[in-house]
């Protein structure tokens, strides 16, 4: 990759990704409201929320909590940046998990039962989806013969045709990561109905909450980019795939209640992990 192009991607990541992520969040809230027969907030609502939160008086339970919030945002931005620069997929997912771990540590650093139990649930979620991500990387390596993200662009046919089951098993991971029903166990950003109040983010307020919100936008863009990897040969296909995923998740969010974590682990490991393993095994035998 040429030097100016790389610089362009870095700038775009910093400036464009939050705009796209914010608009997508706004779109998602609007779609959910329409599905429920409501008018819903304007498309630019997330930006109002962000600016408002940023200018509220900061309040933190302890200093270390603040460090973890910044770490969360930093790792989230870094993983997106590395992805767009076409770096090592294994490394990227590793950094991505780091972002979640930072949030968990932040939640555990406070002596609030809501935050603590929220963090414990987040750990369970991490354990639940991490094997699928590892299998995704393995499958990716089998098809492309490389861990580099940039390799996917030079394939003859999209990854989707060789890894359809892995893509399906990625759906629950996506739902867990964007904290949507039925797997919104640890916290929800915009729906308040939780036995744990706000779970892991209960103790954050003002600007720190704004940072978590911002990180969630980067996260959304990163996850959608990861989905579009499955059709990386053609940018139209990639966008289409990401859009289908996005709306599927929004609709699923709307038609399911929250499940308990034991059910989630069972379901994701049986169905999600099962599908991914079948796909990987099939690649081994068929090749």
């Amino acid at each position: 990759m040429s030097y100016p192009a790389g610089l362009g991607i870095i700038l775009a990541t910093f400036l464009l990704a939050p705009v796209v992520g914010g608009l997508l969040t706004g779109l998602e809230r609007k779609v959910i409201a329409r599905l429920q027969g409501r008018v819903g907030p304007p498309l630019t609502q997330p930006f109002y929320d962000l600016v408002k939160l940023w200018h509220k008086r900061p309040q933190a339970a302890n200093r270390i909590q603040i460090v973890y919030v910044y770490a969360h945002l930093f790792f989230m931005v870094t993983s997106l940046l590395a992805f767009l620069l076409g770096q090592d997929l294994l490394l990227i997912l590793f950094i991505f998990s780091f972002a979640t771990v930072a949030l968990i540590l932040g939640g555990l650093s406070v002596d609030s039962p809501y935050s603590r139990i929220g963090s414990q649930r987040e750990i369970i979620q991490l354990v639940t989806y991490e094997p699928i991500l590892v299998l995704l990387v393995i499958a990716y390596y089998q098809v492309t013969g490389s861990f580099m993200v940039s390799q996917a662009r030079s394939l003859e046919q999209p990854l989707l045709f060789t890894l359809p089951l892995v893509l399906i098993s990625f759906l629950p991971v996506f739902i867990i990561k964007v904290r949507k029903s039925p797997f919104d166990l640890a916290t929800q950003l915009h729906e308040p109905h939780q036995e744990l109040v706000k779970g892991i983010i209960t103790e954050y307020s003002g600007p720190y909450l704004a940072l978590i919100e911002l990180a969630s936008w980067y996260e959304l863009v990163f996850l959608l980019a990861l989905v579009s990897l499955f059709w990386a040969t053609n940018w139209v296909g990639g966008l289409l795939l990401a859009a289908i995923f996005f709306f599927a998740v929004t609709v699923i969010d709307n038609i399911t209640p929250r499940v308990t974590y034991s059910w989630m682990v069972k379901f994701v490991w049986k169905v999600g992990l099962g599908l991914a393993v079948v796909n990987v095994a099939w690649l081994y035998l068929w090749k």
């Binding site: 409201a33 027969g37 819903g40 907030p41 304007p42 609502q45 915009h190 308040p192 706000k198 954050y204």
Partner: peptide
């Protein structure tokens, strides 16, 4: 908050958490 009146169209959310509320 429900469909007939829908407070969310004004950007209002029922947070249930004092640390987030205005």
């Amino acid at each position: 908050l429900t469909p007939l009146y829908d407070l969310e169209r004004f950007g209002m959310l029922n947070t249930g958490n004092p640390k987030h509320a205005d």
